[in-house]
């Protein structure tokens, strides 16, 4: 549904994205993940026809963005990073305007308006002036606008920014429920969000795609050690030294709390039994022992932070 082919965009002499290529299949929900300034918004602006790429091409819903821009735009629902709202309009006026610009027929527009107002939880505020709405409601209006014409492709630039935790859950569920009928590309720099809502993650950094795959695959690929978290009651200060002496233990770091330690062991090893036995035998009082899984956050940090001297 979305096919980016060697997209490169220069702002004056500065390249914002370089040779970005990826594909999103029909019905997939894909997260576009990257730190601020990585080129997420630039890529999305190119895909929605807002601006042309310097080099490269893209197809959305089967239409070439350079040659059949209008047809492509008809098939895209786009929610930009700064929600494009007219503060002096009422919610239903605004949605009506968006629908007419999409070329929707009157009856269909009325029907869809009712649907998106309900789905985005705007029923009580449909008659409100947008300028009086809270940030969370504005975000929902932006989402309603993108879904209004029932586009096969939804491109959402940071859809949960500015929402409170409950609203974030609502919006994520809403996006998840769109899977299957809609192809969704959403950008975020919030990692748990990508992990929770998306089947596939594309990580972009400094304008280049650095990794692509499901969150599970990505974390597995980049795992360099198994990590165990242990917490003990009677810390006598020799814990680090003594545990390090166990074979297959690579490193021991103290955790945030008193008596807690992260123990890194070799990839593929499982030392839970050995370590618990070791701690009990020393009489330290084992309170907790559990494996720590590498999160997407670690993967992300791994990929997007430059080590000194590497670059």
């Amino acid at each position: 549904m979305i096919q980016a082919d060697g997209l490169t965009k220069y702002y004056a002499q500065h390249p914002a994205i370089v040779d970005v290529s990826f594909q999103v299949e029909e019905g997939e929900i894909v997260a576009f993940l990257g730190p601020n300034g990585a080129g997420k918004t630039t890529t999305m602006r190119i895909l929605t026809g807002y601006m042309p790429a310097t080099f490269g091409n893209a197809r959305v819903a089967g239409f070439n963005l350079a040659e059949e821009s209008l047809q492509a735009r008809r098939n895209i629902g786009y929610m930009p990073e700064t929600v494009p709202l007219y503060p002096d309009m009422r919610v239903h006026q605004y949605l009506g305007y968006c629908g007419r610009l999409q070329g929707m027929a009157k009856a269909k527009l009325a029907e869809r308006m009712e649907y998106v107002i309900d789905r985005c939880g705007l029923s009580e505020r449909a008659g409100s002036i947008i300028g009086t709405l809270s940030l969370g409601f504005r975000q929902r209006v932006g989402l309603a606008q993108a879904m209004l014409h029932d586009p096969p492709v939804l491109i959402l630039d940071e859809p949960t920014v500015g929402l409170d935790p409950n609203q974030i859950v609502e919006v994520r569920n809403l996006i998840k429920s769109l899977a299957g009928d809609h192809t969704v590309l959403l950008s975020t720099h919030i990692l748990p969000e990508a992990q929770m809502t998306c089947e596939r993650v594309i990580i972009i950094n400094e304008g280049e795609i650095v990794a692509e795959g499901s969150p599970q695959v990505l974390t597995a690929q980049l795992r360099q050690a198994e990590t165990l978290l242990v917490t003990i009651r009677d810390d006598d200060g020799t814990v680090v030294r003594q545990i390090k002496n166990i074979p297959e233990v690579v490193d021991v770091r103290s955790g945030a709390q008193r008596g807690s330690y992260y123990i890194e062991t070799e990839v593929g090893s499982d030392l839970r039994a050995d370590i618990s036995e070791f701690i009990v035998s020393r009489g330290w009082g084992l309170l907790e022992l559990r494996p720590v899984e590498m999160s997407l956050e670690d993967v992300f940090r791994e990929l997007t932070t430059e080590e000194k001297g590497v670059a």
Partner: peptide
């Protein structure tokens, strides 16, 4: 206000 992005990404010339 960023609404330029709204206008420019509609199927409108």
């Amino acid at each position: 206000s960023g609404t330029m992005e709204l206008l420019m990404t509609r199927p409108v010339r």
